[in-house]
Nucleic acid binder design. Structure first.
Length: 790
DNA sequence: CCTCATATACTTTTT
DNA sequence: GTATATGAGG
């Protein structure tokens, strides 16, 4: 169907003399933009290359220039280059940057994409070799779980003791390891009450009858095909004459084998990665792949990109100090030509709330410029947390002080097909001239309104300078449509007429209206009639969508909300501080970075250490390294002595990673003197200095003198004192102060009116959030809201 | 069939 | 503490 079916094309390209690539910088001025290491990586086109690219060393630049160079020198044609990434975002970025190198005239690269995207393409062509039809569907995680649930109950297994989630994890793990059901090692056969392998086999069988695959299958099926069909493998070996892999440290076993099969003949493979940034071991990534590269490809050139263009020397030194504690690294020494800069700042807090408060205040003053720093715009600041539940403290705090923020990596719910369709219906109902939305759903479900019909509408719309919706009306009026299409379109437009009217007169609740729209439009029926395995899930998602509507006043408000959280590209409003997980921050950079929650147990995560031991700890340490190296100018690490976890107050030790920060690159800040000027500061001062050697010697954080002092201080003052005294302020205004009808304010729900009082609980009818039962102390009189010292 | 109450578990996340 | 899942009951 497309160029890659054309065998002659690559045969011809294969005959392009390799000597052409010896052309130097004169012919290729872009080479002058590179530092020596980058240039070496770009010009080493022949044979295996391992590009060890530290954080901020211009990895993507080297990689994209390398592709451009392959093409510019005529060494390869676009379709002969296989370039794999892990995320669509990375693939997009690479495509854009290659295109920029080459000018717009060059055709796209058909084989630049994620492992999964490329495997889908390949698998559609060879589906029958693994018993699938080319139009197989791809199940997402939810579908997967649903299927497994069925299988588990069919096998008479107690779903409670053996949850489908767990089985899904096990099967994913096997797939990552490139294990088909018949190749489960004996040691793992006992998984899932000994029924793991059988259920895995049943699951694969079921997928096949459904003509479906899950994400892991995309790779595994292709791998099996390569392993069992030499002719197919041979074809692609000749095809993909040059292979490039981004983020090689994140590859799992299946991906590794897949790549090795394709590359082992011509060995033109260039893997780019950083073993120090391997943070996805928990989902099957094998650091071993990158560590082993030179063994797999003897004679490989190892090129280290070590000049960092991102961070100041102090930040680099701090990151290097931490990562140095890991064993078995390939080893890199990041350096920079930068001279000055702030040390990494370290600050301890009493509890998590205070940490959030301090960061909020710091962000506010940083916009003006504070502590002798240049002013920072909020867009230049980010808060990187270990676990997403840490985000809430910041959201709550920033909401109350009105600091604009954005959470990156939220739920993906709104990206689903059925949700976007439903949203499109809502959008047209709210504003009929939303052409994009109208076009999306005009023929979904199928109404016999194909390309031609839509074209007619568009022509009519454009000719009269009206919306597509009006255009459709005109087409109907002109009698330009016949038969089924005519009737269907009439019905649809009538429907939207009614629904739009209902939006306007607001008599019906928006939740009911939404249900009506989905029903009457036939969209729900569309999925009910759909027999594919994912249909039930989609219906459930639609239900969920309707339920989510309850939290909003009307459809407009809901759509606005979703639009904001959906496309962070076209985001409106002023600058905002970003909040995201450390994992989510990989590959990004910010002038100012806050790293809160550096406490043992939280970071490094207790679970990672319990389950993975030293391996887990080292991955956590790499995560710390990733976090620090996100910062360009200012990096602020903080921890709290107390934190509420699952509703319980727990005290914690400062993270062991804090002790690994080289002290000459760290500035210990004193927290503001709310309680007599800094238990934290006193503790911290001494924790530095002598603490480091002691801890290194004993490897026991509990022995840290700094920590002991910190604890002693805390005990002296009474651990609970600070937050109690804070609540007191509220208590006094609260408990007895309210009567029914009072106007009150709540941190999260905003303003409302007291409807009922039961003991210490109030029932409040909130303006926006509806009726809720609230413990009185969390609410203040609306008049006093401005004075409350939150 | 839907709602309410109780129990339970709970990093990280892309495809 | 909160979200989710399941079971009982209306």
């Amino acid at each position: 169907m497309s160029s890659y079916d054309d065998n002659d094309a690559f045969e011809a390209a294969a005959r392009v003399p390799l000597s052409q690539r010896a052309m130097g910088a004169q012919a290729h001025p872009y080479l002058n933009d590179l530092n020596p290491a980058q240039r070496e990586a770009v010009e080493a086109l022949d044979g295996p290359v391992l590009m060890l690219a530290g954080a901020g060393t211009g990895k993507t630049k080297a990689l994209t220039t390398r592709i451009a160079h392959l093409l510019r020198t005529g060494t390869a044609r676009p379709h002969e280059i296989l370039a794999v990434t892990f995320t669509n975002k990375a693939a997009r970025e690479m495509k854009n940057r290659v295109a920029r190198h080459l000018g717009e005239t060059v055709e796209g690269m058909p084989w630049l994409g994620t492992f999964h995207a490329i495997c889908v393409k390949l698998l559609r062509r060879h589906a029958e070799l693994v018993g699938l039809k080319p139009n197989f569907t791809i199940l997402d995680t939810d579908d997967q779980i649903r299927l497994l649930k069925q299988l588990i109950s069919a096998a008479n297994i107690d779903e409670k003791r053996w949850p489908a989630r767990q089985l899904a994890g096990i099967i994913d793990g096997w797939k990552n390891q490139a294990r088909t059901p018949d190749r489960i090692p004996a040691a793992e056969a006992s998984a899932f009450d000994g029924k793991g392998p059988a259920l895995y086999a049943a699951y694969q069988e079921r997928l096949r009858t459904l003509n479906a695959v899950d994400f892991g299958d995309l790779l595994l099926h292709m791998l099996v095909i390569f392993q069992t069909h030499e002719d197919v493998l041979a074809q692609y070996r000749r095809w993909f004459r040059f292979i490039m892999v981004d983020e090689y440290q994140d590859t799992n076993v299946a991906q590794y084998l897949w790549l090795r099969l394709l590359a082992s003949e011509h060995r033109n493979i260039c893997c780019v990665g950083d073993d120090d940034q391997s943070i996805y071991g928990w989902r099957g990534a094998e650091v071993g792949n990158i560590l082993r590269f030179e063994k797999d490809f003897p004679g490989a050139r190892v090129i280290r990109l070590e000049q960092n263009y991102r961070s100041t020397p102090h930040i680099l030194a701090a990151a290097s100090g931490v990562i140095a504690a890991n064993q078995g690294r390939l080893g890199k020494t990041l350096w920079t030509e930068e001279q000055d800069g702030e040390k990494v700042r370290l600050i301890g807090h009493w509890d998590g709330e205070e940490e959030a408060r301090w960061i909020g205040e710091e962000l506010e003053s940083m916009q003006q410029g504070t502590r002798g720093l240049r002013p920072f715009n909020l867009d230049q600041c980010a808060i990187l947390v270990r676990a997403s539940h840490q985000m809430r403290a910041f959201e709550d705090r920033f909401l109350t002080i009105g600091l604009p923020y954005r959470v990156i990596g939220g739920p993906r719910f709104y990206e689903r097909l059925e949700i976007r369709d439903a949203m499109a219906y809502f959008r047209v109902a709210v504003s009929p001239d939303d052409d994009l939305a109208f076009e999306r759903i005009v023929n979904t479900p199928k109404r016999g309104l194909g390309e031609k019909a839509i074209q007619k509408m568009q022509i009519a719309a454009r000719a009269n300078g009206v919306s597509l919706f009006e255009g459709a009306r005109l087409v109907l009026a002109a009698g330009d449509l016949a038969g089924r299409a005519k009737g269907q379109l009439t019905a649809l437009l009538d429907g939207f007429g009614r629904w739009h009217g209902a939006v306007l007169d607001q008599r019906e609740s928006h939740v009911e209206l939404a249900e009506t729209i989905l029903e009457e439009s036939g969209y729900v029926a569309h999925w009910q009639n759909d027999k594919t395995p994912e249909a039930p899930g989609r219906l459930e998602n639609l239900k969920e969508l309707v339920k989510a509507l309850e939290n909003f006043e009307n459809l407009q408000g809901f759509l606005e909300h979703v639009a904001l959280i959906m496309d962070n590209e076209t985001e409106e409003g002023g600058p905002k501080v970003s909040i995201m997980t450390l994992h989510g921050a990989k590959g990004l950079e910010f002038p100012a970075v806050f790293l809160p929650g550096w406490e043992d147990g939280l970071f490094p995560s207790q679970r990672a250490m319990d389950e993975q031991g030293l391996k887990g700890l080292e991955e956590e340490r790499r995560l710390a390294y990733v976090g620090i190296t996100r910062a360009e100018e200012l990096c602020t690490i903080s921890f709290a002595a107390n934190r509420r976890i699952y509703g319980q107050w727990q005290s914690a030790l400062p993270s062991r990673f804090i002790d690994e920060l080289p002290e000459q690159h760290v500035d210990v800040l004193t927290p503001p003197g709310l309680y007599g000027g800094g238990y934290g500061a006193a503790g911290m001062d001494s924790s530095f200095g002598s603490g480091i050697e002691q801890r290194a010697a004993s490897a026991n954080v509990y022995n840290s003198p700094g920590w002991k002092r910190l604890q002693a201080r805390g005990a002296q003052r009474g651990m609970a004192q600070p937050q109690e005294s804070r609540n007191m302020v509220i208590d006094m205004t609260a408990v007895s102060a309210f009567t029914t009808g009072d106007r009150v304010f709540h941190q999260k729900f905003g303003y409302g009116v007291v409807a009922d009082i039961e003991g210490d609980k109030l029932e409040v009818a909130f303006d926006k959030a509806g009726r809720k039962k609230i413990v009185a102390k969390f609410v203040v009189s609306a008049d006093a809201a401005d004075d409350v010292p939150f």
